[in-house]
Design a protein around this nucleic acid. Structure first.
Length: 323
DNA sequence: CCTTCGTTCCGCCATG
DNA sequence: CACATGGCGGAACGAA
C-alpha cells in the first residue's frame, strides 16, 4: 500500500484495568515525535483483545485489535491496576510472537509483571514501580530486579519504573532511534524537561499506607543523604541496627537487591544529575558521589547507564538550547 | 589485560 | 512448634 516500510510501527497494549496514565505516556511520547524534516517516525496504535477496555473510571474504545501486535516493531506494555492479575493467554502468545520476530518490548511501571508472566524477563535485569519491586522479585526469582533505577535497557527488552520514568524510557528509545536532538524536541513537545529530578522522586511519591512490619524507607533515606561518604556494609547495618546478615536478607526480601548495589545505584543517579546540571569534571563528580576512584566510577557508570559519563553529559547537553 | 587482596552476599545452622 | 536472628565459611565480586 502506502510506504509502510519507512514507518516504525508501535503497538501499545491495553489490557483490562490499564493505568490510563501509563497508556497516555506511551501514546503521547512516541506519537508526538517528529523528525527534523517534520515526518512522524512512529505509527502508534493502541491494541486490545476487545473493542472496549475498562480503565478505572473510564471505558476506552480501542480501534485496533491485538493481532496488530504482530506487525509492530515496538510493543509498549503499560501497567494495570492489579499488577498480579493473570494475563489472557492470547496476549501472552501475541507478546511471544512479537518477541520472536525481534520486536522491541518495553514495559511501564507494573507492566513489567506482564513481561515477567510471559517469561520475557527471565535472566535479565529489570525494574518496576518501587512499591511493587519486592513482589516482582518474589514471584519471579529469575529476574534481577533493580528498583533503584528509572529504567533498564536490555536491548530488545526494556522496563521502566513509575509512569514518570516511562517518559524517560521512551525518550531514551527515541534517542536511540533518532538521536538526542529529536529526543530533546519530543521532550519539549510533551512539556517534559529532560531534566529529571533525581530518581529519588520515586521515594517521595505516595508512601504506601500498606502494612510494613519492617520498613526500609528510613534506611533508604539515610543512604540517600549519606551516599557521598565511603560507606561499607557494616556502616549501613549499624545504621539500621541490624547485623550484616539480617540486612542482606531483609534488603533482598523488600527491594529485590542488595545494600551495596542499592548504594551504587544511588551514587550513579546523583552523578547523572551532577553531569546534567553542573560543569564539574568527571573525576570531581566521582568523588562528590562517594566513589573511591574515578576508574571505579567510570566502570560502574558504564554498567548501570550504558555509556561513559562524558558521553552521557555530551548527549544530554546537545539536546538543550545552551543553558 | 592480569593479579592480588579485601569485601560482599548467601546457604547453612545454632540460638533465642 | 513456627519463626526470626545472626555467626560462619566460602564463592563471587570489586578495588587498586
Amino acid at each position: 500500500m502506502s510506504r509502510p516500510s519507512s514507518v516504525h510501527r508501535v503497538a501499545v497494549l491495553a489490557l483490562d484495568d490499564v493505568v490510563v496514565g501509563d497508556l497516555g505516556v506511551a501514546a503521547e511520547v512516541l506519537g508526538r515525535t517528529r523528525l527534523a524534516n517534520g515526518r512522524t517516525p512512529y505509527d502508534v496504535r493502541v491494541v486490545a483483545e476487545r473493542a472496549t477496555v475498562r480503565a478505572g473510571a473510564v471505558d476506552l474504545r480501542v480501534r485496533d485489535h491485538l493481532d496488530q501486535l504482530r506487525q509492530a516493531q515496538t510493543v509498549v506494555v503499560p501497567g494495570r491496576a492489579d499488577p498480579t492479575a493473570a494475563t489472557p493467554p492470547a496476549v501472552l502468545r501475541a507478546l511471544h510472537g512479537a518477541a520472536d520476530q525481534g520486536a522491541r518490548i518495553a514495559s511501564i511501571c507494573v507492566g513489567a509483571f506482564v513481561l515477567a508472566e510471559a517469561g520475557l524477563l527471565d535472566g535479565l535485569r529489570a525494574t518496576t514501580h518501587w512499591a511493587a519491586a519486592g513482589e516482582l522479585a518474589r514471584l519471579h526469582p529469575r529476574i534481577d530486579v533493580d528498583p533503584n533505577v528509572l529504567y533498564v535497557d536490555n536491548g530488545q527488552i526494556l522496563t521502566s519504573a513509575g509512569a514518570a520514568a516511562g517518559f524517560d524510557l521512551l525518550l531514551h528509545v527515541v534517542q536511540r532511534d533518532h538521536g538526542s536532538a529529536v529526543a530533546a524536541d519530543t521532550a519539549r513537545s510533551v512539556v517534559m524537561p529532560l531534566t529529571r529530578k533525581g530518581g529519588q522522586a520515586q521515594f517521595i511519591a505516595p508512601r504506601p499506607p500498606r502494612r510494613d512490619p519492617d520498613n526500609l524507607a528510613p534506611l533508604l533515606d539515610w543512604i540517600e543523604t549519606h551516599h557521598h561518604r565511603p560507606l561499607t556494609l557494616a556502616d549501613i547495618a549499624h545504621q539500621a541496627s541490624m547485623s550484616a546478615r539480617s540486612l542482606n536478607r531483609r534488603f533482598r526480601e523488600l527491594t529485590g537487591t542488595t545494600p551495596m548495589s542499592w548504594l551504587r545505584n544511588t551514587r550513579i543517579r546523583h552523578a547523572q544529575v551532577l553531569l546534567e546540571t553542573t560543569n564539574e569534571n568527571v573525576d570531581a563528580i566521582s568523588g562528590l558521589v562517594g566513589f573511591g576512584s574515578p576508574t571505579t566510577f567510570r566502570d560502574h557508570f558504564r554498567t548501570v547507564v550504558g555509556t561513559t559519563p562524558r558521553h552521557y553529559r555530551q548527549t544530554f547537553r546537545s539536546g538543550h538550547q545552551h543553558g
